[in-house]
Design a protein around this nucleic acid. Sequence first.
RNA 1: GCUUCGUUCGUCUAGCGGUCAGGACACUGGACUUUCUAUCCGGUAACGCGGGUUCGAUUCCCGCACGAAGUGCCA
Length: 505
Amino acid sequence: MRAPVRACGPTKLKSRLCNENKFIVVRTRFAPSPTGTLHLGNIRTALFAWAYARHHQGQFVLRIEDTDLERSSEASADGILRDMKWLGLDIDEGPFFQMQRMDRYREVVAQMLKDGRAYHCYTSVEELDALREKQKANNEKPRYDGRWRPENIAKFGLEVPEGVLPVIRFRNPDDGVVAWDDAVKGHIEIANSELDDLVIARPAPVGEVGVPTYNFCVVVDDIDMKISHVVRGDGHVMNTPRQINIFRALGVEPPVFGHTPTVLGSDGEKLSKRHGATGLNEYAASGYVPEAIVNGLARLGWSHGNEEIFTPQQLVEWFNLESLTPSPARFDAEKFEWLNGEHIKRMPVDELAKRLEPFLKEAGYDAAPSSGDQLDAAGGDGFAHPTATMIAELLRERAPTLKKMAALARYCFVAPEVDAALLAQHLNEGNRPAIAWVKDQLATTDWVKPALAAVLKDAQTRFTLKTPQVMMPLRVMLTGSAQAPAVDALLLTLGRERSLARIHV
RNA sequence: GCUUCGUUCGUCUAGCGGUCAGGACACUGGACUUUCUAUCCGGUAACGCGGGUUCGAUUCCCGCACGAAGUGCCA
């Protein structure tokens, strides 16, 4: 489901480019390529850009950079939209698609050509390769030598070759340095002598403009979309000076740049499918809640003192670019899971129940109703079964993900298989009478927690047993496991009928 | 090779010239006699190396090492 595309950018080149470079409002953007699912690294950049805009009551723009025809797909663009929505990164404008802005880019290239800020270059790819090889062999930096700059043509003795379509190159300044104060990394400067004349439009007959290239489109887009702060991954640091030069050539002051550090896999390698740093959708499917993902992602490279657990709202309130660390961070799956558990614990039960329900269904506990605190329709073992809310209440502190919580809830629906050896460890002649007594009491006692607790306590005193001697056999019979919630809570959740059916003395 | 950026416990980080270098995850010890994969309390564990500057460097400067990115008619 693709949102409607909005046209962006007027056709009056000059007036547009030269004037409105004062940004009153903060406008950030996220500009992914639709070439696959978003991984944690990408989405974190989006999160930071979004949080910055929201913090300043600014706007957040989504731009899809779909000019790589071979790898781009609509499905992937839809996936991006879906993931952002799930995380709560609401967008104010867009998505804009670069493919639909080609005319605009060409218009600007044509203008630059006319103004002498760009020129045709007939050097073939083969020649370029040869040139670079030679430069490398001589221990020089491989770069285009500017031979087709109008003033150099004669010097190089060049003639326009037959049947070769020229590319258009940007005339980069020869001297001086390009410098900017990166909002994350601080002052950075690069000598123009390190930069060469980059191709801004691919081959096309003279008089036409070929397909424009990335570094150029980005600048035109950021100008047209009035982006005030470019928050992006630090893989773009080396593009920045080139882009700044293009901004200036177009008569526009460049925006503020903030380059966020890379996220590495837990092994320290770059994030990729193999590292388990899988797509966001898979975290959703594993029972992670978006609040926890936002929290964890933000905490990877950003900090607000010693705050570890915070809500998306708090992130927005506290966020600033200066508190980003400039160094790369490793993804820590264990900490993410812990964080997820913390967010689950803090969530209102009803909300938790609502989110748990699909996971219960997926686990095969289909009949779970959505809410309420009374037993509802018959479950898989033939008894009225607990609601999602009751289960959430019972297990919220014991499961780090919704999926694990659903798995833990098994005994709420299905009679457990009780291992005889395990039971024998906890049930013996010493406590058997007590358990029998408890069962008797449970047949008639009020099914409320204080009453249930009282029965259990009475059993201890009446039979002079230690607490575990009463609790453990019940726990095992009720759940099939020695690790389970408090027995009174279990009884309450499971219900009288089901509980009695499971207690065998 | 060249350019740019980076380097605090295993991991994420706080620190912005004087701290017993703090917190969190993980790990580990204990407590909770309603178990535990829960909860509470405790513990182990870090400033990459070498020079400066300074009364004093984790903090500032310079080298080195290591890592990352770039060096495309990819984005």
